[in-house]
Design a protein around this nucleic acid. Structure first.
Length: 822
RNA sequence: GCCGAAGUGGCGGAACUGGCAGACGCACACGACUCAAAAUCGUGCGGUUAUCCAUGCGGGUUCGAGUCCCGCCUUCGGCACCA
């Protein structure tokens, strides 16, 4: 008998699928669409198991939806700008462009071995000018609408590499490339105004029913909305006000000192020429000598310096000393706080160190804490004390009343703050999308004209890994006429953060070859939003938040039909080996290529999908892979063996005896379970286990005399159909072997027959006081009383009850009966 | 420190609205086939066994709890001086 020759089978069908353009998709208004997307990869050159898992999960969903009758869009592309290409250029002298395209070619061929149902005609690469032209176009839209701006701000700076680093490139406070401690440097950088969208990005999380709560919560925390008040404290003897933000206006009477961030722009003016200047300066220089990480450590002792100035409490007029301190940040709120040591632990620590006054103004509801002798700050809500006319109010009431009071005297109002900062997108890098802006002495920053896009990356650059962006070394790039006035202008030489490229790629897929628009609105209307998005949880915040931000901006500009990009999100777990993430340094990497060569891609896919539910971590097991391989052999063997008997059989399926009924029952429970597990829950592991049970049942049934061949034929056909999303190659082979035409991808998903699920007799459980005592076969579908009477009349049940007093009987028809006795 | 998730056999994991804990697979053991091995097929497989004990630990609700509630422990993840 023919045996399962996976390598021939896989090569054969992959070739046919490709030449017949099986997975090519077009807009079709007669069908409901389904847009399924896996996060596109960075072309590092090698496919790893995480990729295989990600795309296998996606392929099951895509093939299933197609068979369910949807018009499925399932594209793939490359997130191909980024640092590794440039590092390779510095290290090996290969141009990033060559390095990247070679990697793409390599990875594409590996990816094709997986047999995923991608429409390769829609392939995109973010480093291709056809793509980044539209990236630049979008950037200009942001600029024209006031959402992109340039400002000078302290950024991460590696003094050894002489370059700016993204936050992600700072690992444990050091440069990821050279290990030098990272400092801060003031640089002129481009920002996107994501803070304008903070409230909507937060509020619309509620719309995202199909997202994991975990991811929504992470975004919520990242956006970090705080409701409170901005309060102005006048400086004593100066015509100047110190504005602070607080979430606890109810503690205003407990403010005993003020703190400004060391970088606060007003500090210099307050101390200049005063006797305090020298002491403050020595504190500031101490801070400057520290690295950013040392400074931002929560365990750092709180230290500061008195400015020799006083502010006045806007309600009481009380005189309050003003400090600077290392624990107040310039880039949150107003860069200054009112310190209430009785009710904030940080202020409490500082007050203890500098012997500052601690006045309790909130009393706990249960007064078990001695509020006058605090060992630590009491930071919960409570009842106001020591607060004049506000005494006795609850914290929440006092917040409202005190804000109202401040508003009346024009010294404060309600205020909301977000921890989300504007998005710094400038990178002093070569291998990224050029920022299409030109600086002109007359006109300032002017966007490049649309007809001149894309602003191409120059090729005559030097990669030293030091200094400014490599674009400054190009002789052809920098100088260009101002698009507005025509005088000599200078191009921006920084490139964009690559997270911008990936913030809209899902939109380009709907119309990837459009040369006139970044995509046709017509097509976007049909395809958007992405119905199911699948990727690693490591993108829970940045990529997914940025994509939501872009979609909302484009929606507001009437350039996108939806304001949320991804309806449903599945965050797949990592692939582990020996309990930890596969990595070269740990030497626990399992190469997909090797597994595919030894067992075939169907086995690899099956193992990955079977061993763990998609959102959980997956522990790699070589023995488990062999188990999956064994199962596919088992399937191949029984289908081809039984097929010799059923191939020419036709006629109606008649169920005659218990064996046949049982086989038909298992077939239909499996159809139901697989349909629900794949379609509703993404529980691929249990779907597969139920298919295994069907195969086991088929092996059992094979042993009976006089096989019901029309029934067997039906089982074989449906078995192959439901296997096909998981293991498409072997399924396609068996589909044709069993005499069927066409591709499985174009077949309809088999529906279960509800009648077959009804059993005449059901095994039920008899419990006494909640413990299982007996199992009985009884007719199904009885009423509660029929069920109860039948079981209580049973001899073996009565034997359990001899000499006992029955207190209560709880019948659950078709399941169990519990008898409570004394 | 704050927020969140998860703890079930030797292992990966099932158990959907509270209703037979351990589906399916791996590993292991035994049997059949074989001169033999591999492959394959079959049987067994939480601990004890008259019974009982078992879903991290301790309580609770319920006729009945892996599932719900309260309090701990452990592990993992996110944020981290955010006023």
């Amino acid at each position: 008998m023919a045996h399962y020759n996976f390598s021939d089978i896989e090569a054969k069908w992959q070739k046919r699928w490709e030449s017949d353009q099986l997975f090519k998709t077009e807009v079709d208004h007669t069908k409901e669409k389904f847009y399924l997307l896996e996060m596109f990869p960075y072309p590092s050159g090698k496919l790893h198991m995480g990729h295989v898992r990600n795309y296998s999960i996606g392929d099951v969903a895509a093939r299933f939806k197609k068979m369910k009758g949807y018009n499925v869009l399932h594209p793939m592309g490359w997130d191909s700008f980024g640092l590794p290409a440039e590092n390779a250029a510095i290290k090996n002298g290969i141009h990033p462009n060559i390095w990247t395209w070679e990697n793409i070619a390599e990875m594409r061929s590996q990816l094709k071995l997986l047999g995923i149902s991608y429409d390769w005609d829609r392939e995109i690469a973010t480093c291709h000018p056809d793509y980044y032209k539209w990236m630049q176009w979008i950037f200009i839209k942001f600029f024209e609408n006031g959402l992109a701006y340039k400002k000078k701000n302290p950024v991460n700076w590696c003094s050894s590499c002489q370059t700016v680093l993204a936050n992600e490139q700072v690992v444990d406070g050091s440069c990821e490339r050279c290990g030098t401690g990272v400092g801060k440097k003031d640089l002129d950088q481009w920002y996107l105004k994501i803070t304008d969208y903070a409230d909507r990005l937060l509020g619309d999380l509620d719309k995202l029913d199909g997202w994991p709560d975990k991811v929504k919560l992470m975004q919520k925390n990242w956006i970090g909305k705080s409701i409170g008040a901005e309060v102005g404290f006048k400086f004593e003897g100066l015509d100047k006000t110190l504005n602070v933000f607080t979430t606890r206006p109810d503690t205003l009477f407990g403010a005993t000192y003020m703190v400004m961030a060391p970088e606060h722009p007003d500090v210099r003016g307050l101390i200049s020429g005063t006797p305090y200047e020298a002491a403050v300066d020595s504190f500031l220089s101490k801070l400057q000598s520290m690295s950013e990480i040392e400074r931002s450590s929560t365990t750092l002792e709180k230290e500061g310096a008195f400015l020799g100035r006083y502010a006045l409490n806007p309600i009481t007029g009380k005189q309050i000393p003003v400090y600077i301190a290392n624990y107040v940040l310039m880039d949150y709120g107003t860069g200054a706080i009112m310190a209430v040591p009785a009710h904030d632990q940080r202020d409490f620590d500082f007050a203890k160190k500098y012997n500052l006054e601690i006045i309790p103004v909130i009393k706990p509801l249960d007064s078990c804490i001695d509020i006058n002798d605090l060992k630590e700050a009491f930071n919960s809500d409570g009842i106001l004390i020591n607060s004049g006319s506000f005494d006795g109010m609850s914290s929440s009431e006092a917040k409202t009343r005190i804000i109202a009071f401040l508003a009346e005297s024009k010294s404060g109002q309600e205020s909301i703050n977000f921890r989300l900062r504007d998005w710094l997108i400038s990178r002093q890098r070569y291998w990224g999308c050029p920022i299409p802006m030109i600086y002109c002495d007359e006109c300032g920053w002017v966007p490049e004209k649309e007809e001149n896009l894309p602003v191409l990356l120059p090729t005559d650059v030097v990669f030293t890994g030091k200094g400014e962006s490599p674009l400054t070394t190009s002789k052809t790039f920098m100088h260009t006429p101002c698009p507005k006035c025509g005088k000599q202008g200078t191009r921006e030489t920084d490139t964009m953060d690559t997270f911008l490229d990936s913030s809209w790629y899902f939109l380009r897929y709907v119309d990837p070859h459009n040369e006139k628009e970044f995509f046709s609105q017509e097509k976007a209307k049909y395809w958007m939003a992405v119905d199911q998005y699948i990727g690693g949880v490591e993108h829970a915040i940045l990529h997914l938040l940025y994509s939501r931000f872009f979609t909302k901006v484009l929606y507001d500009l009437d350039l996108c039909p939806v304001d949320e990009p991804f309806k449903k999100l599945l965050t797949q777990g990592m692939v582990l080996k020996d309990g930890s993430k596969m990595s070269k340094s740990k030497g626990n990497v399992v190469s997909p290529e090797e597994i595919i060569e030894r067992f075939g891609v169907d086995t690899a896919r099956l193992f990955i999908l079977f061993a763990s539910p998609p959102e959980k971590e997956l522990e790699w097991s070589d023995a488990g892979v062999e188990g999956s391989y064994r199962f596919l052999n088992r399937v191949y063997r029984i289908v081809s063996e039984l097929n010799t008997q059923t191939i020419d059989v036709s006629g109606p399926i008649l169920i005659n005896n218990e064996d046949e009924k049982q086989l038909n029952f298992v077939l239909n429970t499996t159809l139901k379970k697989v349909t629900e597990d794949v379609g509703e829950r993404f529980n691929f592991n249990t779907a597969i286990s139920s298919i295994m049970e069907l195969v086991n049942e088929l092996y059992r049934y094979r042993e009976v005399e006089n096989l019901n061949l029309p029934l067997v034929k039906d089982v074989l056909k449906k078995l192959v159909l439901i296997l096909s999303p998981f293991v498409p190659h072997i399924s396609e082979e068996l589909w044709h072997l069993t005499g069927h035409e066409g591709y499985l991808y174009n077949q309809s998903w088999p529906e279960y027959n509800a009648d077959a699920l009804v059993k005449d007799y059901i095994e039920i459980v008899v419990q006494v006081n909640g413990k299982v005592k007996e199992k009985l076969n009884v007719p199904s579908g009885l009423s509660r009383t029929e069920f109860e009477d039948l079981i209580l009349s049973h001899d073996t049940v009565n034997a359990l009850l001899i000499g006992k007093e029955i207190l209560k009987v709880i019948p659950v028809p078709d399941k169990l009966l519990n008898i409570v006795i004394k």
